[in-house]
């Protein structure tokens, strides 16, 4: 009797551990992302009532109250163009051109998916305050220390290994972007200089 109870308890504990661990992995490291453009990833069903179980849960954890794609498309980057994880302590250069949406922005978030404290109180750039080159291109530098031009501060949260998430929002995207998001030209993300 006692042996059976102990076995049942062990089964329950192991099952709970496996369930919690696999759910955590699915929420923070897995999850369906059906569109990839360079370092950027998106899920076309984010926010939608048609979203599946995993998409809905992942969006709730990493971007609660997302709008559906017809209103807004969200491209997220947690890696650079070479697939290396973004780190807040490093400098990165984003290079691109204006995007075809009613308005768009690029925002930096810490590992906890909240805005990053910084003395400049600069948390994002949008199409209205980003400085463009005469040819229409832009260069944006992310990093903990002030940089000339468009600089998006990333602080030093989490030390050398602290992660960084970039989110590109396209509000009222152009019909071509909505129809074929994977063909949207998005900014490149490359390391700028050595990383501590």
């Amino acid at each position: 009797m006692i042996r059976n109870l102990a076995t049942a308890l062990a089964v329950l504990l192991v099952a709970c551990g496996l369930a919690a661990g696999s759910a955590w992995w699915a929420l923070f490291h897995g999850g369906p992302q059906d569109v990839a453009v360079g370092a950027w990833r998106m899920n076309s069903l984010a926010g939608s009532a048609q979203a599946g179980l995993y998409t809905r849960a992942r969006v709730a954890v990493t971007g609660l109250f997302a709008l559906n794609a017809s209103e807004t498309i969200y491209f997220a980057a947690a890696q650079d163009d070479a697939g290396r994880p973004l780190r807040a302590a490093c400098r990165y250069t984003l290079t691109g051109r204006s995007l075809t949406a009613r308005w768009w922005s690029i925002t930096a978030y810490a590992d906890d998916f909240f805005l990053i404290p910084n003395a400049a109180q600069r948390f994002s750039y949008n199409m209205g305050n980003l400085a463009f080159a005469p040819d229409g291109s832009f260069t944006l530098t992310t990093g903990p220390d002030p940089q000339p031009g468009n600089w998006l501060p990333t602080g030093r949260q989490g030390g050398r290994q602290g992660g960084l998430h970039l989110l590109l929002r396209l509000y009222n995207p152009a019909p071509a972007v909505l129809a074929l998001p994977q063909a949207t030209p998005l900014p490149s993300i490359t390391p700028a200089g050595d990383c501590p």
Binding site: V11, V14, A15, L18, A23, A57, V61
Partner: peptide
């Protein structure tokens, strides 16, 4: 025993994934 454990884990896993958005909201 392994089959029961894995089956139970799968059900609990799906329950957590279902519950997360409702709980956070």
């Amino acid at each position: 025993l392994i089959a029961i454990t894995l089956s139970l884990a799968a059900v609990l896993h799906l329950g957590i994934i279902w519950l997360v958005p409702r709980a956070i909201t």
